[in-house]
């Protein structure tokens, strides 16, 4: 495995204005270490506010950690330049919206230029992405006119244009119908099999169980448990991931109280 992504002791502190005149520092991410290697899908599970989005933003270099490091290796070579790292990452979240006044094709052409692709190369790439995500019928429509599922497919296509080695997806299937989310899950599997690094977060336990090679459970900015879906089930003695999750989070909460 030549490519890898490793986070060490990541901490992100936000200062929040709680009530009037009172400021408190909150560690949204509190000392997380995590490693993902090529050909692996790692799922981040956690309740709302567990720190998933902040963690993924730091992993994709959108945000700087308060302390700790993220190390990206491509072909065994560590990349340190933030701009260069971004060339290897396809990042998608609910906050990465698309330019509504553009068509998907125009958007992809613009992005191809940003990533430094030649025109002919870009057109070829766009044609193949269009086919993979079956976007033929709407690729020339303005994005603001697309349905939710179509928009999400357009979003995925955005992450594909530069053929990144690492995908970081924050709740990519949120609010999608079965068909659309199935297409996205298929896509992630295919990319994993092609040897890409995939780190993604979700609320859907069944989806995570079925898709991920490894799961990381977050609560209050800390990892409370991690392992393969099977090992987690074994560890808790529960049969479904949903119960595994509830049990671990509740146990963590109880442990904190003591």
């Amino acid at each position: 495995m030549k490519n890898s992504m490793t986070a060490q002791q990541l901490v992100k502190t936000f200062t929040k204005n709680e009530k009037k005149n009172k400021k408190t520092d909150i560690n949204a991410v509190d000392g997380i270490s995590l490693s993902v290697s090529a050909g692996e899908i790692v799922g981040i599970l956690g309740a709302n506010g567990a720190g998933k989005t902040t963690l993924l933003r730091m992993m994709s270099k959108l945000m700087n950690p308060t302390s700790g490091t993220v190390q990206i290796k491509i072909n065994d070579e560590e990349i340190t330049d933030t701009i260069e790292i971004k060339r290897h990452i396809g990042y998608l979240s609910n906050n990465t919206k698309l330019y509504g006044r553009f068509s998907t094709r125009e958007l992809l052409q613009m992005l191809a230029a940003v990533y430094g692709l030649e025109k002919a190369q870009a057109d070829q790439k766009i044609a193949s992405i269009c086919q993979i995500l079956s976007m033929e019928e709407f690729i020339d429509n303005r994005i603001e006119k697309l349905s939710t599922g179509q928009t999400q497919r357009a979003s995925i296509s955005r992450c594909l244009i530069h053929d990144p080695q690492i995908y970081i997806f924050d709740e990519p299937t949120l609010g999608l119908d079965i068909l659309s989310s199935a297409a996205i899950i298929e896509f992630m599997k295919r990319e994993r099999d092609a040897g890409k690094i995939i780190l993604y977060s979700t609320h859907y336990m069944e989806e995570a169980e079925f898709l991920c090679d490894r799961l990381v459970l977050l609560n209050h900015g800390k990892i409370i448990s991690e392992g393969t879906p099977e090992s987690l089930k074994e560890y808790t003695g529960e049969k479904s991931m949903r119960d595994v999750f509830s049990r671990l989070v509740i146990r963590e909460g109880a442990a904190n109280e003591h």
Binding site: G90, K97, Y99
Partner: peptide, 12 residues
């Protein structure tokens, strides 16, 4: 419109 974060993912 939420496109700023999209811009931040780019090598710019």
């Amino acid at each position: 419109r939420g496109t700023l974060e999209t811009m931040l993912t780019l090598p710019v």
